[in-house]
Amino acid sequence: MTFKAIINGKTLKGETTTEAVDAATAEKVFKQYFNDNGLDGEWTYDDATKTFTVTE
């Protein structure tokens, strides 16, 4: 399945996608990506659209 992340950061904005077997796996991938890029913020997840949003 394809999962999307919308990034609303102070220094980084945009979208990225990942292929994962479930939402928990996708969340781990996205959180690692955000940690690697120095992002920290509020997380939400919309199961209907398979979209994570992080707002810094």
Rank of each mutant, 00 (worst) to 15 (best):
T25A: 13
D46P: 00
K28D: 05
Q32N: 08
N37T: 10
I6C: 08
Y33H: 05
D22Q: 01
D40I: 14
E56M: 13
L39P: 03
E27F: 15
E42M: 10
F30N: 01
D22L: 02
N35M: 14
F34V: 13
N8L: 13
Y45E: 00
D22F: 02
I6S: 03
A20H: 02
G41T: 06
W43D: 00
Y45C: 00
G38W: 08
M1S: 12
K13T: 11
T17V: 10
F3Y: 11
F3M: 03
A48S: 10
G9A: 06
D47M: 04
G38L: 09
K28P: 01
K10N: 10
K13G: 05
D40H: 13
E56N: 06
N35L: 14
N8A: 11
T11G: 11
M1P: 06
E27P: 01
D22S: 06
V54E: 02
F30A: 00
G14C: 15
K50E: 01
G14Y: 15
A26F: 00
N8F: 12
Y45I: 02
T2P: 05
D47I: 07
A23W: 10
T16V: 15
T55D: 04
T25W: 06
K4C: 09
T18K: 03
T51P: 00
G38I: 08
E56K: 04
E42K: 10
E19T: 14
K50T: 02
Q32S: 08
D22H: 02
G38V: 06
E27V: 07
G9C: 14
K13S: 11
T17D: 04
Y45R: 00
T51D: 00
A23G: 03
K50S: 04
I7T: 05
Q32Y: 04
V29D: 04
V29I: 14
T16A: 13
D40C: 12
K50R: 15
A26M: 02
G41E: 04
K4D: 04
K13Y: 13
E42N: 09
N8S: 06
T17N: 05
G41Y: 15
A26K: 00
N37K: 15
A48K: 09
T18A: 07
T44N: 08
G14S: 11
T49D: 03
F30D: 01
T11D: 10
A20Y: 03
W43P: 00
A5Q: 02
K31E: 04
K28G: 08
T17P: 02
T49C: 04
E56W: 11
K50H: 12
V54S: 02
D40T: 13
T44A: 10
F3D: 03
K28V: 07
A20P: 01
E15R: 03
E56T: 11
T53R: 05
G14F: 15
G38R: 07
N35R: 15
T2S: 07
A24Q: 10
Y45V: 00
T2A: 04
K4A: 05
D47V: 07
D40W: 14
M1F: 14
T2K: 12
T55S: 08
A26W: 02
Y33N: 04
F34R: 02
E15C: 15
V54N: 01
F3E: 03
T44E: 10
N37I: 15
T11C: 15
D22Y: 02
V54A: 03
T53D: 02
I7N: 04
E42V: 13
D47K: 07
M1H: 13
L12P: 06
